[in-house]
Design a protein around this nucleic acid. Structure first.
Length: 486
DNA sequence: TAGGATTGCAA
DNA sequence: TATTGCAATCCTA
């Protein structure tokens, strides 16, 4: 039995789409009661809480406790949520997240400084280049000024629109790069500026004296029951491009001769699709160790070697099959290659027929019960799936398809985190679980624990689902503190 | 000074 | 070509 309980989490499990989930909002929603605001008590945050008059502070605090308890009593009376989700997943997760937050993450300041210099030089060079191409100086970070230079002064062809005006984002600019080198330079400039301000300055500013950085994990924010991370957001650290990937190297082990270990689920969504739909072709594809994307291309195009544009279509098909198509793109079906892709989607369904059946069944069940659920019976109500408006119904259908797969994977990693934390405690490991990035767990490994930890964590992660025709697959990435390896 | 708009990073 | 989140910056109210 859990040692603690959380009223916000209860509400969040019931409906993750509530914006601004907070005690005062719930008090007014359920009890039509307006709570004393923190702003009022602290004189618009001019006072710190210690400076607040004792009696005022007491009133404020007691009210918090009183309302929380009242909320708890109310929730106990109408158990309309899945207790297993609450007591087996979300509540035990609180402690795991707490431990991860107080473990902190060690950052190597020197690596960041080195990247800083690298980026500053590049930015300066690009700045000069852009100004000479534009024949004047302007603020490259201002979309409005970029727009003026490119479309008014240099008369470049306009691309797509934003809400209010012509867009100058990288997609638009890269379409212009062949004829207009200034466009590409602006994209590069923005890319490097982004890295410098968000990931280098941003990270360095948040370091303490020991070069440790602290993040906050929020478990009641996203509408998909995934976690989110703030101050800094450790879930969007760059990986792909070279300079960007150097930033990952700045995440180092705090231990002498320690190492960083990252274990991530490989293609969870597609594997879950195979498991949940029980489609033989898809299952066999995984059993034979084929890359699923390759297999899809084979099915769609009936050949092993494919061109770049065919690859693009195959990728789109995979996305669409897993996530469904958005209302926006549904309306855009006129677009030629989109239309073409639609034909391929149907080909995909022909070859993976059980997948189609699975989707049809999910939608049908949702129409009857007004909800969809994950493999762990986490439910979400989508009443608008029976709406007369076709567009609204289509949106609901897309959610119905997407939800069981994507949200099951959110459950899986949460369960894995709880199990891993238990295992580490039981074996009194010194290593620490330091990050979670949606389908990846990152550890700071103490010398000597590496082999055991790798083996055990992999085992736990791959075996969250029992008795399935194929297992989940976990890939391992590891890196030493490079200056210690020489 | 607050907040909308734009942009871009991750999964 | 999905979706959701976080954050930096610009710029207007």
């Amino acid at each position: 039995m859990a040692k603690f309980y959380d009223t916000l989490i209860w509400e969040y499990i019931r409906d993750p789409w509530v914006r601004w989930l907070a005690l005062d909002k719930l008090a007014s929603k359920y009890f039509d009661y307006e709570m004393i605001s923190y702003k009022n008590v602290t004189n618009n945050k001019k006072l710190s809480f210690e400076e607040v008059d004792l009696l005022v502070a007491a009133d404020y605090s007691v009210e918090d406790v009183y309302i929380t308890n009242k909320l708890y009593e109310k929730q106990k009376k109408d158990w309309i949520i899945n207790n297993k989700i609450l007591y087996d997943i979300e509540i035990p997760l609180i402690e795991v997240l707490k431990d991860m937050e107080i473990s902190w993450v060690k950052i190597n300041r020197d690596i960041l400084k080195w990247i800083w210099i690298l980026l500053e030089n590049e930015i300066l060079r690009l700045k000069k280049e852009i100004f000479s191409l534009a024949w004047e100086e302007f603020n490259i970070k201002s979309p409005k000024q970029v727009w003026e230079i490119l479309f008014i002064k240099l008369k470049l062809p306009k691309g797509k629109k934003t809400k209010t005006w012509w867009s100058v984002n990288s997609e638009v600019l890269l379409n212009l790069k062949k004829e207009f080198p200034i466009a590409e330079s602006i994209v590069k400039y923005r890319h490097f500026s982004k890295l410098l301000s968000t990931y280098v300055y941003g990270l360095i500013n948040l370091l303490d004296e020991e070069d440790l950085v602290h993040t906050s994990y929020n478990s009641t924010v996203t509408s998909t029951w995934r976690l989110s991370s703030t101050n800094p957001n450790l879930q969007n650290i760059p990986v792909w491009e070279w300079i960007a990937s150097q930033i990952r190297w700045a995440f180092v082990s705090r231990w002498n001769k320690g190492k960083i270990l990252a274990l991530d689920y490989s293609q969870v969504e597609v594997r879950l699709l195979a498991i949940m739909s029980k489609d033989k072709n898809l299952i066999n594809a995984f059993k034979n160790g084929f890359d699923i994307h390759n297999k899809t291309w084979e099915f769609i195009f009936w050949k092993k070697e494919i061109t770049w544009s065919e690859r693009k279509i195959a990728k789109a098909v995979n996305f669409w099959v897993i996530y469904g198509i958005s209302a926006f793109w549904l309306n855009k079906m006129i677009n030629s290659w989109v239309k073409e892709a639609w034909i391929y989607i149907n080909k995909f369904y022909e070859n993976y027929s059980k997948v189609k059946d699975f989707f049809d069944k999910t939608i049908k069940k949702a129409e009857e019960t007004w909800y969809v659920e994950t493999m762990f019976w986490r439910k979400r109500y989508i009443k608008w799936i029976t709406d007369r408006n076709t567009l609204i119904k289509k949106i609901a259908e897309r959610e119905a398809i997407n939800m069981p797969i994507q949200w099951t994977s959110a459950d899986i990693i949460k369960i894995a985190m709880i199990e891993v934390a238990k295992m580490m405690k039981k074996n009194k490991l010194k290593s620490k679980m330091i990050m979670q990035v949606h389908d990846e767990l990152v550890f700071d490994v103490f010398l000597g624990e590496e082999f055991f930890l790798k083996k055990e964590v992999k085992k736990i992660m791959e075996n969250i689902l029992k008795d399935t025709p194929i297992k989940l697959k976990v890939d391992i990435w590891e890196w030493y503190n490079w200056w210690e390896t020489k």
